[in-house]
Structure formats: structure tokens, C-alpha cells
């Protein structure tokens, strides 16, 4: 008889309470009537009203989404290329330098990435004249740079765990390497590419430090807006914004998880049926 791991279950409960009490508190206080963000003063949805009527928030959200969509897409293309190169090109010249270059942004403190990007863009504007002003372009460029390496990590590890014989089989059946890539490799790693894109998108949506350094006048992303508000202290409309974020992300994550789980279960069922009926 297995003993129930009481201690571990207690720690799990404690851990999840630790994870979610602050978030729940934020959600509850988003319906607070009081101006004070953490003292209960009756139920109200006025902060949602003020949030929706705030054009600045809407503009910041749109800008963030634009940057995230563009940077995640380009980062996915570049990151996938790098992942393929690292996983499949063997020992090409400059491989060590390249893999170092792909790892470094992962561990570079954001503040240093931010400052170095800013100095780079300032000097570039001074001596080359492009980009003339900082904003959408510079934030996007910086986001591509530090999110592509996350895509690379995801794609590379998926490719290393994939059965290479599948690609060899395609080659053996007459396909040249490029065609093997299109016919077999990319379809097989497409889930990793998709999750890489999602990761890059989230990183971009969430980034405040690098955006804050590389932005210019007029280009305020949502995290920059929140940052500037929060620095001044706790404000209730941020609670409302946080609630909306948590609810949106929660719905997305759980729907995705549910769909994946269902697909996995169906595959498992099909696999079992295949063995029972066909043998």
C-alpha cells in the first residue's frame, strides 16, 4: 500500500495558495468602489469603465499587439532557421560562436540588453541616420533579437528529439535536402514552431525593461504604460486591467490545454484501436 504523500500535498496547496492569492486579491479589488486600491469600499465596476474610456490604454494595447505580432513572426522565422542550423548542419565553421550567440541573449540581464540596444540605436541614428527616431521600429528590432533565441531553443530541442530516420527516408526516396525540409522536417516540427511563436509573442507582450529603453516619444506599449502608472503607486484601474489580462490568458491557456488534451486522448484511443482490430 502506498502512503499518501501528505507533506507534498500540503506543500502543493501552500504553493498554489501563494501563486493565486495575490491574483485573486487583485481580481476582488478590481471591483472595489474605493479609491484606495486595497481597502474594501463596496462593489463597483467603475474601474472597468474608466479603463475602457481611457483611450491611452487602448492605443497602448494596439501598439503592443502590433509589435508582438510582427516581432514574434520575424523572430519565429529567424529562430527556426537558427534551430535547424544548430540541430542539422553538424559541425559547420563558426558553430561554437553561433551557439554562443544564440545562448547569450537568454542569460543577458534585460537591463544590459536594453542599454546596449539603446546605445546601438542612438549611435546608428547619429552616424547612419536610421532609424531616425526611436519607437515602433526600434522596439520591434530589439524584441526580435531577444525573443528569437527562445524560439531557437524550442525548435532545436524538438529537432534533436525527432527521429532523424524520417528525414533520411525522404532523402532515400529521392528528395533533395531542401525538399526534405519542406515535405518532412517543417511539418514534423510545426508544433514546436507554433509554441515558439507563442513564446515570442508572450515575451514581447510582457516586456517592459527592453521596451522602456528602446522606445521613444509617443510609442507607449501596454507594459510601459503600466510601468509608468505603477511606479507612482497602486492605482485601482490597474487591478481591472490585471483582471482582464488574467481572465483572457486563463481562457486561452485552458482552451488550448483542453484541445491538446482531447487530441492526445483521441490519438491514444486510435492507437489502441489499431492494435486491437488490425493485428
Amino acid at each position: 500500500m502506498r502512503r499518501r504523500p501528505t507533506f507534498l500535498i500540503t506543500m502543493l496547496c501552500f504553493g498554489f495558495a501563494f501563486f493565486y492569492i495575490p491574483i485573486l486579491s487583485m481580481i476582488v479589488f478590481s471591483f472595489n468602489n474605493s479609491r484606495l486600491a486595497t481597502v474594501w469600499g463596496g462593489f463597483s465596476t467603475k474601474w472597468y469603465g474608466s479603463l475602457f474610456s481611457n483611450a491611452q490604454v487602448g492605443r497602448a494595447l494596439v501598439l503592443s499587439l502590433e509589435i508582438a505580432l510582427l516581432s514574434a513572426t520575424i523572430a519565429t522565422i529567424l529562430g527556426t532557421m537558427a534551430g535547424i542550423a544548430l540541430a542539422r548542419f553538424g559541425r559547420f565553421r563558426g558553430r561554437t560562436a553561433f551557439s554562443g550567440l544564440v545562448t547569450a541573449p537568454l542569460i543577458m540581464p534585460e537591463v544590459i540588453t536594453g542599454i546596449s540596444s539603446l546605445i546601438f540605436f542612438i549611435l546608428l541614428a547619429n552616424y547612419v541616420g536610421w532609424p531616425a527616431s526611436r519607437g515602433f521600429t526600434t522596439i520591434t528590432l530589439a524584441h526580435i533579437t531577444f525573443s528569437m533565441v527562445f524560439v531557437t531553443t524550442v525548435v532545436q530541442s524538438r529537432m534533436l528529439s525527432a527521429d532523424r530516420a524520417i528525414e533520411e527516408a525522404a532523402m532515400d526516396l529521392g528528395s533533395r535536402p531542401w525538399q526534405v525540409m519542406v515535405d518532412v522536417t517543417l511539418p514534423v516540427i510545426s508544433p514546436a514552431i507554433l509554441s515558439g511563436w507563442l513564446l515570442a509573442f508572450t515575451i514581447s507582450m510582457d516586456d517592459v525593461v527592453i521596451s522602456n529603453f528602446t522606445t521613444g516619444p509617443g510609442a507607449t506599449t501596454l507594459p510601459i504604460l503600466i510601468w509608468s502608472k505603477v511606479k507612482l503607486g497602486v492605482t485601482p484601474d490597474i487591478n481591472a486591467l490585471a483582471t482582464l489580462t488574467v481572465v483572457t490568458v486563463g481562457i486561452c491557456v485552458f482552451t488550448a490545454g483542453w484541445l491538446l488534451n482531447r487530441a492526445e486522448k483521441r490519438r491514444e484511443l486510435e492507437r489502441r484501436l489499431a492494435y486491437q482490430i488490425n493485428e
Binding site: A165, E168, A169, M171, D172, L173, R176
Partner: peptide, 20 residues
């Protein structure tokens, strides 16, 4: 001569069927 130009085909141990 690269694999794709050889009049030779292989049945892999893992079968290597294209899963998609």
C-alpha cells in the same frame, strides 16, 4: 552520389514513416 540519386531504397529499423 547523394542518397536521393541512388537507385537504392531503405526500410528503416524504426520504419521512419512520415507521421503527418
Amino acid at each position: 552520389v547523394p542518397p536521393w540519386e541512388r537507385p537504392v531504397h531503405m526500410m528503416f529499423q524504426s520504419y521512419a514513416l512520415f507521421p503527418h
